[in-house]
């Protein structure tokens, strides 16, 4: 069984997969802190699925970009689970996870925050450029270069994501870390 964790935006999404099928999913929107809901939701889905943590063979975590604190909590919990349960762990970026969940061959994936957007442009499921962060005005300029691309819907198809990851190698839990993309504001200008 696989435990899926996503905390990159205002939602905590926990999924349990068995033989490529999503058997249970809980989604909690927390406007305050994921700290209030993340571990309780994991505990809840395990209870509801009548399994224990020992039944998991793999953890899949969305490691950003998105909310710094949100991603950090999800990644901290995920790597700690993988390390202590001694099971494999795989990461996927929020941008690629959204891309995999949308079928269009040419698409723009965005993850917005309060000042701008994380952006990934995809052609045939491949990133055209690397994931970038732009302010909203910079973004308006940027997408003019991609007139025939469609906007991807911010949605996660957990089954598609975990099936895609089957061909991706495990990572040592110690090396699992968030992807922030954005530089730290106080250090700009230094």
């Amino acid at each position: 069984m696989i435990l899926f964790i996503s905390t990159y935006n205002e939602k905590v999404i926990i999924g349990i997969l068995n033989n490529n099928k999503l058997i249970l999913k809980k989604e909690v929107t927390s406007h305050k802190s994921h700290s209030l809901t993340l571990v309780p939701t994991i505990e809840e889905v395990i209870k509801d699925a009548r399994i224990t943590l020992k039944d998991f063979k793999e953890i899949v975590v969305v490691n950003g970009p998105g909310s710094f604190t949100g991603v950090r909590l999800g990644v901290t919990v995920a790597k700690t689970l993988a390390y202590t349960l001694n099971i494999s762990i795989k990461t996927i970026t929020s941008i690629e996870a959204i891309s995999l969940s949308n079928n269009n061959p040419k698409k723009i994936v965005i993850v917005p925050d309060n000042k701008g957007k994380y952006i990934g442009v995809f052609k045939d499921n491949k990133l055209v450029d690397k994931i970038i962060y732009l302010s909203n005005t910079e973004y308006d300029e940027y997408i003019k270069d991609y007139p025939d691309y469609q906007m991807a819907k911010e949605y996660l198809d957990i089954e598609k994501i975990t099936i895609y990851l089957k061909n991706i190698n495990n990572i040592n839990p110690h090396s699992v870390n968030p992807i922030y993309i954005k530089t730290i504001e106080v250090l700009n200008g230094k």
Binding site: S35, I42, F68, T69, R72, T80, T84
Partner: peptide
């Protein structure tokens, strides 16, 4: 520091849950 405290606290919760 809130962000720092949260890492330790979520780590602790995870260990508590696992063991």
């Amino acid at each position: 520091l809130l962000g720092s405290l949260l890492v330790g606290l979520e780590f602790a919760k995870t260990l508590s849950l696992v063991y």
